[in-house]
Each structure stands twice: as C-alpha cells, then as structure tokens.
Nucleic acid binder design. Structure first.
Lengths: 116, 116
DNA sequence: GCCGTACTACGATGCTTATCGTACGAGGCA
DNA sequence: TGCCTCGTACGATAAGCATCGTAGTACGGC
C-alpha cells in the first residue's frame, strides 16, 4: 500500500465481498471501458483520468470511470486536483482467480496487438 | 461434428472469427443468461430451451437465447419441435483461451455452490 | 487572492434492452 | 386431420445507459 497521503475526500468503493461478477463483466463489456482497463494493466501504475486519450468528452470519461469504480474493477483516489486510477487486481484475483488476466489476454488477442 | 440430421431450418450464427469479446462479456453479464450458460456447462449435453426453468416468460427466454447465440456463446439447432442449445466451447477456447472456464469458475465461487 | 487545471454534477437526448402478452408457425402424435 | 407442445414474431413498455454540453467545485501555483 503506497497510498501515501492522498489529499482530499474519498470516493465510495464496493468492498471486496460486495463485488459482483455480473457487474464486473458488464463493466468490461463496453469498448471504452475495456480500453481503459487495458491501458491501466499495461502501464501497471496508477494513472490519472487525463492520462487517457479517449474519443469521447470528459463527462463521458468520468461516467466510465465511475462505472468501473462502482463495479469494483478500479480504485480511485484523489491526489490533489488529479484522480488516480488503479486496477483492483488483488481483490479481483482473490474473488475470481485468473479472470481479469484472461480477459486482458483475450482483448489483446482480439486486437491483434498489445494496448497502444 | 455430431450434428446428426437436425430437421428444419437453421439459425444465423456468427462465424468463429466474428465473435467479439465485448459481445461475449455483455452476453454473460446478465444474470439470467449467465445462469443459462452455467446450466449448459454443468450438464455438458445440448439442452432444449424448455429444459430451463427460469423466472421469466417464454418470450423473454427466447430473447436471452437469441442474445447468447448472436454473441457466439451458444449454438442453436432445431431438432423437430425442440431447439437444442450447446455451448460453443471449441470456438470460445480457440479465441479466448480459458476465459469461459474462468467465468464459470467465478460464477460458482460467487454463488457458493455449483449450478443447481 | 486569483487563475487555470482536473474533475464532477446535472439535465437532456436518443438508443438499447429486459420484460411482458398475445398471436402465430412448425412439427410430432393420436 | 386435428390437437398439443415448443418456440417465434411483433408490439408495447419501462428502465438503463452512453453520450453530450454547460455550469460548478476542489486544489495547486502564481
């Protein structure tokens, strides 16, 4: 846990045992959100929302990040004016072992290349 | 191919290479459809629609089977008055190795028991 | 204190979808 | 042939959701 002194308010996340498989699958079934998750996985670090260049407006981006957070796929922490996003790999692997990895692998296969 | 003499018309299925990960995830993200898929996997055989006892009407059931077929998750074949449904495990495993198994495993874990 | 950046909240919009009911077609069986 | 079962088609409905634009809040830097 290197969540060193995240300044500011914090956002509602589902606890590990509240994460529902159906919600996770639904969150991952949107191309834009799958893309976000792939980039997060590829980078490994926590990224701010503005690190993502998506072909939608900022409000739509906010919406997608919210869906990902509320489904338990990502964790969001305010850090000053930025908001850092990280995959909840620990929780997801504990609940659904291997699932996230297979989805990411499947996405890469389908795209024919690793994430840009 | 043991598709022995399925009587009657046949239904439109996506070819293997047309199956999209997002569509599969979306198909599996509905509780009713995930339940259908779990029962199909648990049984192993091809089941007719009426083998499923779902808390929805028949038209809704038809709709869910159609979504599963059009996303490439199941294969449907008419057999007299019945329609047999089988998982496309071969195609799914070829495209997205391990994905279906992990989803099924995750569903079982979450339900706390194998499919009824 | 003021400004700019990062993100949010809210309302609108149009599309998708999960659900139902009813009416219909296809095939087995008496 | 006529009936029953299985499943479909179609229309309706209500909810969900992906998207946008605008207006607003929080925070860091000047």
């Amino acid at each position: 846990m290197t969540t060193a002194a995240a300044s500011g308010r914090d956002l509602p996340h589902p606890a590990r045992e509240e994460i529902r498989l159906e919600s996770v699958l639904h969150a991952l079934s949107d191309p834009m959100r799958l893309r976000i998750v792939r980039e997060l996985a590829a980078d490994g670090r926590e990224l701010s929302c503005s690190d993502f260049v998506l072909p939608v407006t900022k409000s739509t981006t906010t919406h997608h990040f919210r869906v990902l957070r509320e489904s338990g796929v990502i964790r969001q922490v305010y850090r000053g004016t930025a908001k850092l996003n990280g995959l909840r790999t620990d929780d997801l692997d504990a609940l659904f072992p291997g699932l996230l990895d297979r989805v990411l692998e499947a996405a890469t296969r389908q795209a024919g290349r690793p994430v840009p």
